[in-house]
């Protein structure tokens, strides 16, 4: 019924870092698609490769990172074929990012007004002082009541929540089609967190943008995401509609993760099921989760499972589910 390609199509993304003489694989073959106006949650523990996935898509990693992929198509356009300069022109206006630490996201030597002015000019050349009116209305759009004062403030004079609002204002000024939000509320307190999430959702709908929402917080993911991908050790182990993944997880790791957040919500100490820690040595063969899996079977240590359908638009990377 839909002939046009999905907004973003990622096939077999692999990112590794040179550490001394070794190469550390942070992302080991990630594939997913994001449809128009869709919010895809990328969830997993620290070190699972979810942030590196987001950074790889925008080519924002340092030089010692190597990014490879079979294909990264944005509206059918093959992004890997772009050189640095033509990819730069897509950044911001087509693919933008909201970062984890709003305080560090701003140039400490410049005012918020300066930042917004250049974001507005990046989208379109406005002459003279015309940017200022637009900047004020953008700040009002993100819930800032005294835009004049904020425009003339330096980053160190504002709170984290205020800065995250201002950063969102910069991003929406560029009207990107895809926003990668990398744990945008992690450093904020609970009340502000709710407001920022609401803001992201409102503007996602208004701009008709899609969002890749990176988080470790399942409650947030449930609130904001249409679909969810669960990452473990640099791979997606389960992907599907948010409801299906959260209500009825099919991969033992996803189930454990969900159990963890339920225990936290019920104020239990922590989860006993999930022993060990991620980011250790990943076995050369078999399932990466086998060492910690409560349902491990002998063949899990030798066979690396591929993605198997477990429901409508719902897949899991686990041998428990028949071929």
């Amino acid at each position: 019924m839909n002939a046009s390609p999905p907004l973003l199509e990622v096939m077999n993304l692999r990112t590794s870092f040179a550490v001394g003489q070794r190469r550390v694989k942070a992302v080991r073959g990630v594939s997913f698609t994001i449809g128009d106006e869709e919010v895809l949650g990328l969830i997993g523990e620290s070190g699972s490769g979810k942030t590196v996935t987001g950074m790889s898509l925008l080519r924002l990693l340092p030089d010692h990172a190597a990014i490879e992929a079979d294909a990264i198509r944005f509206r059918g356009d093959e992004l890997t074929a772009h050189d640095e300069e033509s990819f730069r022109k897509l950044r911001g206006v087509q693919l933008a990012m909201i970062f984890q630490d709003p305080v560090g996201s701003f140039n400490p030597a410049k005012t918020i007004g300066w930042h917004l002015e250049h974001a507005i000019l990046r989208r379109s050349e406005t002459d003279g002082k015309a940017w200022r009116a637009e900047a004020e209305s953008l700040l009002q759009d993100v819930g800032i009541r005294a835009p004049e004062r904020v425009l003339s403030s330096y980053p160190h004079q504002l709170s984290g929540g205020m800065l995250q609002r201002a950063l969102i204002a910069m991003v929406i000024a560029l009207r990107p089609a895809l926003i990668i939000a990398d744990e945008p509320t992690t450093n904020l307190d609970n009340l502000v967190e709710r407001q920022i999430l609401e803001l992201i959702r409102v503007h996602q709908r208004r701009l008709k943008a899609s969002v890749l929402f990176v988080t470790h917080d399942l409650a947030i993911a449930e609130d904001i995401c249409d679909r969810i991908a669960v990452m473990y050790a640099g791979e997606i182990v389960e992907i599907g509609p948010a409801d299906a993944v959260l209500r009825n997880p099919q991969h033992p790791y996803a189930a454990c993760l969900l159990q963890t957040s339920i225990s936290l919500a019920q104020r239990q100490e922590y989860l006993f099921e999930l022993a060990g820690e991620p980011g250790g040595k990943i076995p050369d063969e078999g399932c990466a989760f086998a060492g910690r899996c409560p349902k491990v079977m002998p063949q899990c240590r030798t066979i690396h499972p591929d993605m198997r359908a477990v429901g409508p638009d719902h897949q899991a990377r686990c041998l428990l589910h028949g071929d």
Partner: peptide
């Protein structure tokens, strides 16, 4: 390698 430089690059400057 500070964050604000990465943010600036993410905006396509």
């Amino acid at each position: 390698y500070r964050d604000h430089v990465r943010v600036a690059r993410s905006l396509g400057y």
